[in-house]
Write a protein that binds this DNA or RNA. Sequence first.
DNA 1: CGAAAACGTCTTAATGTCGAACTGTTCGAC
DNA 2: GTCGAACAGTTCGACATTAAGACGTTTTCG
Lengths: 174, 174
Amino acid sequence: MPADTRGDNVDRVLEQWRAERPALDAAPMGVVGRVQRACRLLEKGLGDYFATQGLQLWEFDILATLLRSGPPYRLTAGALGASAMVTSGAVTNRVDRLVKRGLVDRETDPDNRRSVLIGLTEEGRALVDTALSGHVANERRLLESLDPEQQDALAGLLRTLLVDLGDAPGEGGS
Amino acid sequence: MPADTRGDNVDRVLEQWRAERPALDAAPMGVVGRVQRACRLLEKGLGDYFATQGLQLWEFDILATLLRSGPPYRLTAGALGASAMVTSGAVTNRVDRLVKRGLVDRETDPDNRRSVLIGLTEEGRALVDTALSGHVANERRLLESLDPEQQDALAGLLRTLLVDLGDAPGEGGS
DNA sequence: CGAAAACGTCTTAATGTCGAACTGTTCGAC
DNA sequence: GTCGAACAGTTCGACATTAAGACGTTTTCG
C-alpha cells in the first residue's frame, strides 16, 4: 500500500506548492480547485445517467427548467439562457435542436414580439417527467459519501459564496 | 425592496420544485447545482484576473502545473492532460500554442520515445512566476465571503466528495 | 408624433473541445 | 528474435460555444 492513500488530487497539488513555493499560502487553491474538480466529476456522473435516458445534460437542463417554472411551462429565450448561464446564441442552437426532436415549441410572445416563448410539448413534458426522479436519485447516489448534515453544510457554505459572487435573484441592477 | 432578497438562485430553483413537485425531495439538487454555479462564477473570476496578465485560464493552468512539479519543470503530455482533465488531443493543441508563444518546449523522453516531455522555458517560468501571487490573491478575494474556518470546512467536505468520486491519487487501477 | 436609445433574439465567424483513427514505440509471449 | 497487443501523442472531422453585429420591436422623451 502506498504511503499516502489519504487525500485527493488537490492535496497532492497543495503538497507540491508547499515544496516548490514554501512562502506561498496556497490555501485558496484548495477551495477553488476542489470546486472545479467536483464540478467536472459531478457533471460526468450526471451525463452518464442522462445517456441512459437518451438525453444530453443540457437537454434535460432546459426541459427541467421549463417544467419547474410551472404551468403553462413556458419561458423566454432570455430566461433559459440566464438559468443555464449560456449566451443567447447557445440558446438559439439548443432550442432549435429540441424543436427538431419535438420536445419544445417556439411561439412569439403576443405581448412583446421581441420575445420568444419556448414551451414544453406534451412529449417533452412526459420525457422530462420520466427522467426527473431517476436524475435526483442519481444525484443522491453521487453525494452519498456525505451524510445529510454534511450535505446541508456544503450547500450552506456554497450559498454564502454564491450570494457574494452575485448569484442572487435581484442582483442584476445598478 | 423585494420580498426575498435572501438566498441565491438555487434557492429559487428549489422553491420552484417544491411548488411544482411537492413529493420530490430535491435536496441533492441544492448541492449539485451550487457546485456547478460556483464553478462557473469562480472560473469567470479567475479568467478576469488572467486577462489582465495576458493569459488564458488554461495557459496558466499548464504553466503552473509545470512549475509546481519542481525542477526540472518537465512533465509528459499525459500528465498534463490528467491534471487538467482534458483529452490528449486538447493537450496537443494547447502545447502547440504555448510552444508558439515560446513559453514551453517539447522534447521526446530519452528513456521512452513514445513520451513527450513538455518543459517550461525561462520565459514561461518568469511569466507564471509573476502571475502566481496575483492569482492566489485573486482567489482569496473571491472567497472572502467565507472566513478561514468556513473555507477549511468547505475544502474538507469537497475532499470527501472527491475521494468518493474517484479523484484520488492511486485510483486508476482495478 | 417622431427620432433615438434600449431591448431580445437570431446570425455569423472564429475558436476550442472531444472522439476516433493513425503513427510510431515498447513490452510480453512464444 | 519476431509477432501482436498495449501504449503515448498527433491528426482529423464533427460539433458546440462564444463574441460581435444584424434585425425587428418597444420604450423613452423631446
